[in-house]
Design a protein around this nucleic acid. Sequence first.
DNA 1: CGGCTTCTTGACTGGGATCAAGACCTGTGG
DNA 2: CCACAGGTCTTGATCCCAGTCAAGAAGCCG
Lengths: 231, 231
Amino acid sequence: MKKNTQCDNQSCFLCRSCVKEWLPAVAANKKNFVAKKGQVIFSEGDPVTGIYFVYEGNVKVHKKWGADKELIIRFANKGAIFGHRILGKQASNYPISATALEESLICYVDMEFFDATLKVNPGFTYDLMLFFAEELKEAERKMRNLAHMPVKGRVAQALISLKEQFGTNEEGHVNIELTRQDLASYAGATYETVFRVVNEMIQETTIIANGKKISITNTDKLFALTQDTNL
Amino acid sequence: MKKNTQCDNQSCFLCRSCVKEWLPAVAANKKNFVAKKGQVIFSEGDPVTGIYFVYEGNVKVHKKWGADKELIIRFANKGAIFGHRILGKQASNYPISATALEESLICYVDMEFFDATLKVNPGFTYDLMLFFAEELKEAERKMRNLAHMPVKGRVAQALISLKEQFGTNEEGHVNIELTRQDLASYAGATYETVFRVVNEMIQETTIIANGKKISITNTDKLFALTQDTNL
DNA sequence: CGGCTTCTTGACTGGGATCAAGACCTGTGG
DNA sequence: CCACAGGTCTTGATCCCAGTCAAGAAGCCG
């Protein structure tokens, strides 16, 4: 993986909404770097200095509770923005952590320049606003699910989301390798419970799993688990 | 409560960020109406036609699960925007419901005009973006709490949030009258559980409650309940 | 006063977290 | 090539928080 690879507009949230005249300034101000697998890019409570974009790879955005519990909020893959929760009032520290799940090429832009970009590019601000609206809608759905949906449904939902975001490779596997621990943290459950639930799903031939690889063989059945049967 | 009362810029999310020249257009295009206590302003699945602002009163934004379960996402009081989750891709139906908790003066703007407003007022778009970023941060915290924090902490957190948003009146009560059912839905728990938890808090003299009125007498103790003791 | 809804409390239940222990990998050095 | 140590995986047993159910009390109209 090369350092300082240029973003192409298609695969960068920042670049694809910028006005053309501003792109040279972006190129001059961004700093690209490679994050190794497992590398913590920033951690909850760290002072905010800037904002990040994923050019290549995969990053988990998570929030801790206790020494050994966390909830994975979302995954940021190619083209995605993260660390954006720094926007808004009194945002001097990151409220979440970000960790690379695989070797990733990250683009970093410091806060001051990012703010200038927003002012120069109303279209970019608009796109960012739309992105936030989408995120918010999704977050609210997940809140409701965490409050009311049983674990099995949440795991099903997690798998569906992963398939939607990462697609499937030629072997039919969902195109991400995720430890059971991370799947558990994403679904908001424990390692053991997720293990059992995944086993059930294999019994019921709704999914096939070997190790970290998972294929969904019965989307309808999986989807049914995420539905509210009482309505 | 008078219909068609004019917004003053201070108490309206829409007006306070608009460029002056555009305000007459806003005044001409908005439609004010009074929502009665308990009135459903829109419901999940309803087709989207526009966006709403609270000029006076209080509105709960909630999401259903099953016939008799819901999660209250947030409360919108004076100056707040709601129904904004319509922004973003393929947003043809409201993903949430909105219900007036008391008689409220609501300002309605149809989608088309709202979109024009965004295009004309980059500052407004920027403010909306910041608002969404704040909301998102809060939503992510609540997700983590729903996944990992015990009910007592969630109720404590709910009370703290209510106090922050609504303040206290001259009697020291948190300035909102909320049924136990709504408090439960806001904390993501059941009526009975919340009842018991609230009783415990009264025993421990951290709060005083009579009926729907609640006073917080020991903020520190309440706050401690929301903290992660394992860290 | 009688028929509501809302409140209050106790008893029960179960989903899922926690604990524990053995199996199975995987790398490392002798 | 094997032994051993440190993980991760797998499974069973147990526990407990909070949801559910039920039923009486208390407030609240018409």
